[in-house]
Design a protein around this nucleic acid. Structure first.
Length: 546
RNA sequence: GGCCUGUUGGUGAAGCGGUUAACACACAUGCCUUUCACGCAUGGAUUCAUGGGUUCAAAUCCCGUACAGGUCACCA
C-alpha cells in the first residue's frame, strides 16, 4: 500500500490540497496592508474583551487599506448556541464594527469562504491528508482511559504532561498495525507527528509583546477529532493561510500555543503570519488583578453599558484609550478631529493586563456627551427611556421642544457643561424641570445662610422679577433686589467686608434657586427660569411662601 | 509543578542608558464665578516590587528572589 492509499484509508475527503491552494489565490493588496480577522466562537453574547479585540483588528486593517473578515470558529459543535452568529454580528454593528468579508446576516461575502469553519471540513482534511502522506501525522487509537492513565502517571512522577516522546505510543505503530486496527473497527483520531525538541528554544517576535523565546513543541497534538472536525490549531493554520491573513490579532491567552502554531505552519509548508497578542482587560478583586470574566463580572457584558446608557461611541473611545494610551493626548491636541484619523500602533499597546477604570469611562462619557447637540442628547435619552423608563419617555415625547431646550442649557458652546455621564441618570438631573415629576418635599435649604429670611427674599424678588428680561437685565434685577435687602451685589466687595452685609448675591440667588428647583446645584438659573415661564416661576415661589 | 509574560504615584500610563520621572482620570487647594459645572493655576512618586551585578552614569542592561497574570483538552 502506498502512502497515498494509506492516507485515503485514514481520511475521507473530496479534493486534493492543491485544489484548494489554487482556489484561494494570494491577495493582491498594497504594501503594508494588514489582512486580519475576528474569529469568535458563537458561544453567546459579545463581551467587552471580544469587542476590544475586534475593534483593534478592524481598525488596524482599515488604517492600512487592508481587509478584515469575520470567521466563525464553530468546530466545537457542543458549544455553539442558536443565533450565536446573528448575535455577534448585530452586537458589533452597534459599535460600528463591520467586516469587509466573511459571515454576514445574508450568508457569506468574499472570495475566501466558506467563512464558517463547520463548512470547511473537506478543506481541513485535504491538508491533514497531505501531512499523513508526508509522514507528519498519524492515527491514534488511544482511548480516553488510556490517556487519563498516562496523565496521572506523569503527574505522579512530576513529569511534563501530555502526549509526546515515549508517551506517544501510537506514533510507533506500523502501517500494517494501523490497517489491521482499522479493519477491526477501532476508532481513531489524527495527531501531528511533532519533530520538535523541548530543550531547543526558538525566537519569536510578537507585534505587541516584542521578542521572546519558547521551547519547541514536542506534543503530538490532535489535529482531527473523532467528530471528523479539526481542532482549533489546525483550523487556524489552514484558514489563515488560505484566507491570506497577514496579522493574527487575538487575545493573549493564545500566546502559549505559539510553539504549536508556528510548528504547524512550518510542517504544512505555509508562511507564518505575524501575531499580535492583546493583553486582557482586568478587574480588581480582593486586591488582586484578574481577567474580566464573562461569567462573574457584569461589566464584561456589553448590555451593561447599554442599560447604564453609556453611549456606544464613548465606550469605543474608552477602549481606544486603553489600546493606545497616547490616543488621549492626540484627542486633546486634535479636539475637532474624527477619532478615525488616529492611527493605532501595535507597539504602543499595553503588554500587561489593563485594569478596568470605571472613573475614566465616566469621565470619557461625560466629555463625549458634552459635545453632542441637544437634539442628539434628546434622542439618546428618549431611546434609553423607551427601553427602561416608559413614564419618562412619555414626558420626553409630550414636551419634545421643551426637553430639547433643557438639554441645550449651556450646551453647543466652547465650554459645555459636562454633567451628564450616562442616560440612566438623566432623569434624576432634570426631574424638577417637569411639573409631573416635581415634588418639592426636600428643599435643600441646609446650604443656605441661616440669616436668610426666605419669605422676605422671595417676596422682594417677586417685585423685581420681569419674565421678559434678557440675561443681563435679569441679573441686574436680581442684584437690585438683593441690594435692597442689604445683600452685597458684588462678590469682591462682599469678601472684603462680609460683616457689613446680610449675605452676598450668591446667598440671595441660592434662595431663589432652591425655591424653584428644590436643589442648590442646577445649571444656569436664568435659562431655567426662562424655560419655566412666568406662571411656573411664580407658582413655585408662592408654594414656598405659603 | 512545567512553560511564557509582567511589576513606574490612588488608578490607567509615558519613558527603551544621562529627563526637574510626561500625560490623563481621581483627590486636595486657590482663582474665576449668582449655585453647580466648565476653564485656569497649584499640590502631592526623594523614586520606578526587591536583593545583587555591569557602567563614569540604570526605572531603563544582566542574574537571583518575591508577588501577580496567562497557559498546559479529541474547548476555542
Amino acid at each position: 500500500m502506498t502512502r497515498e492509499e494509506y492516507a485515503d484509508l485514514l481520511v475521507k475527503n473530496e479534493h486534493d490540497y492543491k485544489y484548494y491552494e489554487d482556489k484561494y489565490p494570494k491577495r493582491d493588496l498594497p504594501e503594508g496592508a494588514i489582512v486580519s480577522r475576528y474569529a469568535p466562537s458563537p458561544t453567546g453574547y459579545v463581551h467587552l474583551g471580544a469587542l476590544y479585540t475586534s475593534f483593534i483588528s478592524r481598525k488596524m486593517s482599515k488604517q492600512t487599506n487592508g481587509v478584515c473578515f469575520l470567521r466563525i470558529e464553530d468546530t466545537d459543535q457542543k458549544r455553539t448556541i442558536e443565533n450565536g452568529v446573528e448575535r455577534i454580528i448585530e452586537d458589533l454593528a452597534k459599535f460600528n464594527i463591520n467586516f469587509d468579508e466573511g459571515v454576514t446576516l445574508d450568508g457569506d461575502k468574499g472570495n475566501y469562504g466558506p467563512y464558517m469553519q463547520s463548512k470547511r471540513g473537506d478543506i481541513y482534511k485535504a491538508f491533514i491528508k497531505k501531512l499523513i502522506i508526508e509522514d507528519k501525522a498519524y492515527p491514534c487509537f488511544c482511548t480516553e482511559e488510556e490517556l487519563k492513565h498516562d496523565h496521572d502517571r506523569q503527574a505522579l512522577n512530576k513529569e511534563r504532561l501530555g502526549y509526546y516522546g515515549i508517551w506517544a505510543r501510537c506514533r510507533r505503530l506500523s502501517m500494517d498495525e494501523v490497517i489491521s486496527k482499522i479493519n477491526n473497527g477501532e476508532k481513531y483520531i489524527i495527531r501531528l507527528k511533532s519533530k520538535g525538541n523541548f530543550n531547543h528554544h526558538f525566537k519569536f517576535k510578537d507585534e505587541i509583546k516584542g521578542k521572546m523565546e519558547f521551547p519547541e513543541n514536542d506534543q503530538d497534538i490532535v489535529i482531527l477529532k473523532s467528530d471528523d472536525l479539526p481542532t482549533y490549531h489546525l483550523a487556524h493554520a489552514v484558514d489563515d493561510h488560505l484566507m491570506g491573513t497577514t496579522h493574527v490579532i487575538r487575545g493573549d491567552e493564545w500566546l502559549s500555543s505559539i510553539p504549536v502554531h508556528v510548528q504547524l505552519f512550518e510542517m504544512l509548508g505555509f508562511e507564518t503570519p505575524k501575531y499580535a497578542h492583546i493583553s486582557p482587560i482586568c478587574i480588581e478583586e480582593d486586591g488582586k488583578k484578574r481577567k474580566l470574566s464573562k461569567r462573574k463580572d457584569p461589566e464584561a457584558a456589553i448590555s451593561y453599558y447599554h442599560e447604564k446608557g453609556i453611549p456606544y461611541g464613548a465606550l469605543m473611545l474608552f477602549l481606544e484609550t486603553i489600546a493606545n494610551s497616547n490616543f488621549e493626548m492626540w484627542m486633546l491636541q486634535n479636539k475637532d478631529a474624527n477619532p478615525d484619523e488616529f492611527k493605532l500602533d501595535f507597539k504602543k499597546m499595553p503588554i500587561g493586563g489593563t485594569l478596568f477604570d470605571h472613573e475614566k469611562l465616566i469621565s470619557i462619557s461625560k466629555n463625549y456627551i458634552s459635545k453632542l447637540k441637544a437634539i442628539e442628547v434628546y434622542d439618546m435619552a428618549l431611546n434609553h427611556a423607551l427601553e427602561y423608563d416608559k413614564d419618562f419617555a412619555l414626558l420626553l415625547e409630550k414636551y419634545k421642544d421643551y426637553s430639547v431646550s433643557i438639554f441645550n442649557i449651556e450646551r453647543e458652546q466652547k465650554k459645555p457643561r459636562k454633567d451628564i455621564a450616562n442616560f440612566s441618570e438623566i432623569k434624576s438631573q432634570v426631574w424638577y424641570m417637569y411639573d409631573e415629576l416635581y415634588k418639592p418635599v426636600n428643599y435643600e435649604w441646609q446650604k443656605i445662610n441661616s440669616k436668610d429670611d426666605i419669605k422676605e427674599v422671595l417676596n422682594t424678588y417677586l417685585k423685581y422679577y420681569n419674565p421678559d428680561d434678557d440675561k443681563n437685565s435679569w441679573f441686574d434685577h436680581m442684584k437690585e433686589a438683593a441690594v435692597s435687602l442689604n445683600y452685597a451685589g458684588d462678590m469682591k466687595e462682599y469678601k472684603v467686608n462680609p460683616d457689613k452685609y446680610k449675605g452676598s448675591i450668591a446667598d440671595f440667588s441660592t434662595v431663589i434657586r432652591v425655591s424653584l428647583t428644590s436643589k442648590c446645584n442646577t445649571p444656569d438659573l436664568y435659562e431655567i427660569m426662562r424655560l419655566f415661564g412666568k406662571d411656573r416661576v411664580i407658582n413655585r415661589i408662592n408654594e414656598v411662601i405659603k
